[in-house]
Structures are given as C-alpha cells and as structure tokens.
Design a protein around this nucleic acid. Structure first.
Lengths: 334, 334
DNA sequence: GAGGTTTATTGAATCGTTTTAAGATCGGGA
DNA sequence: TCCCGATCTTAAAACGATTCAATAAACCTC
C-alpha cells in the first residue's frame, strides 16, 4: 500500500541504494540525482518505515522515559527538557507514566525492551536495578532521574533535597523567624527526610532558633490542612512564627487552615510559609507561596546527554549528577 | 549480542518456524516441544525484536495518543482508560503531549507515521484533518477525542458540554437559587460557549430565574479570583446567590475571593458554587467544590475500541460518540 | 499392512531499509 | 589511444520474526 524505497527508486530511475544515500548521506550523491530522487519521494509521499530501519540498525532511535506521575509539573518539565535535548540529536522520547505502580513500571520496561530502545530514563518506583541491569546486558543503557542509584551502578541525575531544605529554613531565619515548624511525612519518603535534614542543618547555624517537627501521613492538601488547624487551635503564643512544608500541596493546605474565616492567622505577618516544588498553583494561592524550585528541564536534558554517551560507549563509568534547587520568594514569606 | 529466534531454535533443536509457533500459536505445537523451546527461551533470556515482527506484520501493535495537556487529570485518566482497553487486546499506547502547540502536535504525528502505528488517538489543536487523512491513506486510522470532527470524516468520542452546563444550573435551581452568575471565557473556546449555552437552556425552564454572564479572559485561578473580588465589592443585594464557573480553576479563584478574610461571603449559604472538570483539587478546596465530571476513562476506552475496529476494517463509516457528563455534589452547593 | 487422513515440523521466502564491495562512468595525463 | 584515479551508482547481503507450502510422522480404518 504505502510506497517503499523500491518504488521511489523505480520512479526516479536509480537503485534503492542511491535513494538511501539521498536520505542519509546526501554528500555522496550528485546534485542532479538528488533532485530527481527528492521529486520522486515527494510525488509518492514516501515516508520511511522505521521498523525496517531499526531492524537493520539493531536498535531504535527512541528513548523511553518512565516517570512516577505525569500530572506532576516537575516531571512534565523534565520530560520537555529530555525531548528537546534528544531532538537535537535526532532522537525521540516516549513517555510512560508508572503512577507509582510496580506493574505499570514493569510493563513499560518490557515494552522498551522488545522495542530495543536506544536507552531508558526512569524515576524508579521499586527496586529495579536488577531489571535495568538486564536491559543493559541487552545493550539498552539506563539513567535514573530524581533518584540516586543505591549502589551507584547506574548514572543518575537528581536534585539535592538536603540543600533545598536548608535553603528554605535559611531564608526564614534571614527574615527574622526563630520558631520554625516543619510539616511533612511520612519519613519513609527519602525526599521528606532529606528536606527535614536540610532544615535541621540550617537551624543549627542559629543558636536561638528552634525547629518543631509536625508529622503527617501523606503529602496532600487535606493532611496539610489538618496540621494547619492544629496550629490555629493553639494558644497564639505557642504557635510557630514560620512553617516549612515538605511540599506545596501541604503548604496550600496549611495556608487554607490559617486563612480560614474565624482562624484569622495572618500570612506572612504572624506565620511565614515556604513550600517545595513550586507547582503552578503555588503562585495562584490566596497568598502567593514561596517555594523551592527544582531545575526540572535541566535534569531531563542532562539525563539524555549522559544516556546518549553511554549508548555510544557502554564501557563508560556511571556518573552521579546532583543539581542544586533554587528559592523562589513570594508574598507568603516576606 | 542479544539472542534471536535462530539461537533459540538451535539450542532447542527445532526450526525457527517452530519457535515462532510456540510463541504465537501454541496450539499448533506438541507439549513436549513447547516445553523444550520455552526452556531454551528462558535459558537464553530471549526477548522478541519488535522491529522485525512489525516489519513483517506491516504495522505496529502500538497506538499513539496525543493530548493537549498531560498535566490535566482529564487527559491522564483518558490515557489510562485507553491503555487498559488496548492492553486487553495486546496493544500498547504511547503518550504524546502537544501542549497546545501545533509544531509539537505535528512532530508526534510524523513519529507515529514513520513508526507505522496501528492507529492514532488525538485531541487536536489546530486543523489537522488533512494530515490525519494522509495517515489514513497510509493505513493508520485516527479517532478524535474530546473534540468532534468538523466534517464528520473521522470518528470522535467527546462529552456533551451543553448538557454539562445545563446539569450544573439545573442543580442550582433545584437548590432554590434564582440569581445565577456564569463566570467564564474567552468565548472563542468551544467548551466555554457550550457550557454557557447549556446554562441558558436550564435557566429558560425557570421563569423567575436570571443568568448573569461575567466574562473573563482566561480559565485560571487568577482570573476567577478577580471576578470573585468584583462580586465581593458589590452591595450584598446585588450579588448573585449562585455561581457556575466554566471550570474548576476559575471556581477555586472565586472561592478564594469569597472566603478571604474581610470578604466574609459564606459558601454555600450566601453564594452556592459549581465548577467544571472535577479536578483533584476540587475536593481538597476549603469548601469542597461541586463540579461536573466527565467520564474520562470511558472516553479513552471507547476511542480505542472504535480505533481497533477501524484498523481492522478501514471501510467502516466514521462514528461520533457523545457521552453525558455527571454532576458531583459537594459542600459548595448544598 | 496398505492407503488415507490428520497432525507436527520444516525451510525458504518475505517485509523495507541500510551497507558495502564491486562496477560503471568520466576526465585527464602520458 | 590507452590507462588511472576519482566519483557515482549498483546489486546483493544483511537484520530477525512470521508465514505458508511442503514434508514427515503418526494414527486410523478396513
């Protein structure tokens, strides 16, 4: 049905090899022939069959990316960075959403394996280093994003959450706040513990400052609001003068509780607030939310770059790249 | 490097044809041989090369899906529905995010064409029927999601926004509200006009009810908050007793403005509020938000179903499926 | 036990592209 | 005129899985 190189060659009066050369090594073909072949391609509406190309090449020119949650702007921005960088070298990126489910993650890895992807970028959910090793044995390298590899056997590109936590609390201290509360949890999430550790580090630099830790069981608006209500219920003298929330959803919940009719806690006057992730909603909150922003697109770009290098030379030693997050100051912490 | 059917055949002491049969038509092969071949497959860690399979088959067993915005839960749920339905028939879905950009949309369609996808699902951004026709000529059918095809030359699966608007306002009327305001815009967005039309239809059934239209220039929290402030600034007697917002973001902005310290408009007592889309945040709002929910997953499932049928029989006439949205009542409109 | 029928397995051809060694064409120098 | 080298172009051999006509083996039935 669809035209093949053979049809193009016949119409242009050349051999199939020449048609291939026109498309892949134009410098090897005389201008006159090139024009004739191009005309035939246009006339027939020829579009290369990638399956055949791939079969011959032995591997695909597509990179697979599996993220924990496509709805999360952090990952979409990361994906965008990856796509752009890949496109610059003629590669495509296809996006899979594991949604933090091991079986979905496994399904995507299977797909990438049968498709003989050029490489895989993944923000892993479970422990999948065994599976990734298997892919690597088959010639498909993998780079971890937003997580570091436990045994450093794979390259990774991540963000320093400890530095992020420190950044947030240092900022609050600089604003003159001294009684700071960290609201977040569960501590099983590595990012949460890292951010808390960072907060502790920063507090330690200021002898008269204290850090209260308020644990919640999920990083959601609801959980944040509950924690916020608890603060509102306290005697005003017992309240912290600043809150560092483990992410923006929690921060928004806290903000709702503080600003609620009847609560009347003023933000930032009475309690300053800093979140984490800098999601879209952060700037659209009633009081625009200060937050810690991660260089998402840069992570994607860098991960692709490393991946392409490893695909070209499988003997390359794994590298761990860690980026620094950035503080975005808005009204909630002024 | 990687094992091929040939290696498996050699190890199992059978021909390549038999290996293929073991994998694709197990009933054609004797149990003894099947066991032997399976052992060889396991031992070698054989994984089928999809490029070769596809080349032979003439088309991929993957379906391409392009959405306007992967961050939008409507589309991720739709994608999930599509994936599940596709998996049931042994197909995979790959997800592309056009982000409402024509060039990104075109890039994905190009990719799907060279990959000889089994079919394409798309929530189109620009006018791409010409391009889709081209794909169809090459044997790649397309089904539109969340939009109807202007000339009905393609199948489509969408939601009745007029009915949704009517549903929202009918509900508010049933709650005894009579002075209703529609907040939304710009009217260039088809969904906005449809929802407004639905609202008008519902109002017409209640002679003593009035509909005020408050236009805004974007469907954002910020724009909604500005509109909400305008309501707060009015003499209480001039305020509507219910607001139907064109989507949940706008509704949340309105809610923020009404509930803000100093504004003290009680929701739903003084003003009831209904949004549209039922995003996650809707239920997490200070006052949980009533909203109109679209059957996202069902749309994805149905679209895949139609696509597979059209792929099997290209002569099938295009079908337009329109689903009805659903009202989700929460505290904001009680 | 011969003939016929079913069942299991084989091997070669095929899909469409890329690659490479070999061949053709041309111009120019001797 | 002949030969050499430099360009271009060609033809054929891959890549790996699937399929199908052909073969081989087993099983009945009389």
């Amino acid at each position: 049905m669809a035209a093949s190189v053979k049809d193009v060659a016949a119409l242009a009066g050349v051999s199939v090899g020449t048609v291939s050369n026109v498309m892949n090594r134009p410098e090897k073909v005389s201008p006159a022939v090139a024009v004739r072949v191009q005309a035939a391609i246009d006339q027939l509406g020829f579009v290369r069959n990638d399956a055949a190309r791939q079969l011959r090449a032995g591997r695909s020119s597509t990179i697979g990316l599996v993220v924990l949650d496509v709805r999360n702007p952090f990952f979409t921005d990361l994906a965008r960075g990856a796509e752009d960088r890949a496109a610059a070298d003629g590669f495509s990126v296809i996006l899979g959403n594991s949604d933090e489910k091991a079986d979905r993650e496994a399904t995507y890895l299977d797909l990438f394996e049968v498709q003989r992807m050029h490489g895989v970028l993944i923000s892993p959910f479970g422990d999948i280093t065994g599976r990734l090793r298997q892919l690597r044995d088959r010639g498909i390298p993998a780079v971890l994003v937003d997580r570091t590899s436990a045994d450093a056997s794979f390259s990774s590109v991540s963000v320093d959450d400890i530095a992020g936590g420190s950044l947030a609390v240092t900022h609050l201290l600089a604003q003159g706040r001294r009684r700071i509360a960290f609201i977040g949890g569960p501590l099983e999430i590595q990012q949460v513990t890292d951010r808390l550790d960072g907060a502790r580090t920063a507090i330690a630099t200021q002898p008269d400052a204290t850090l209260e830790v308020i644990l919640i069981d999920a990083l959601t608006v609801i959980a944040g609001r509950a924690a916020g209500r608890e603060l509102v219920a306290r005697d005003p003298a017992e309240r912290p003068d600043a809150v560092f929330a483990a992410n923006d959803l929690v921060a928004m919940g806290v903000l709702q509780a503080l600003m609620m009719q009847g609560a009347d806690v003023r933000v930032p006057e009475q309690i300053a607030l800093v979140g984490y992730d800098d999601i879209d909603f952060a700037s659209a909150a009633v009081v625009p939310l200060s937050s810690i922003r991660q260089p998402s697109a840069l992570i994607g770009q860098t991960a692709v770059e490393i991946l392409l290098e490893e695909a070209a030379d499988p003997a390359l030693a794994p590298r761990q790249v860690v980026f620094q997050p950035e503080l975005v100051v808005r009204e909630s912490s002024l």
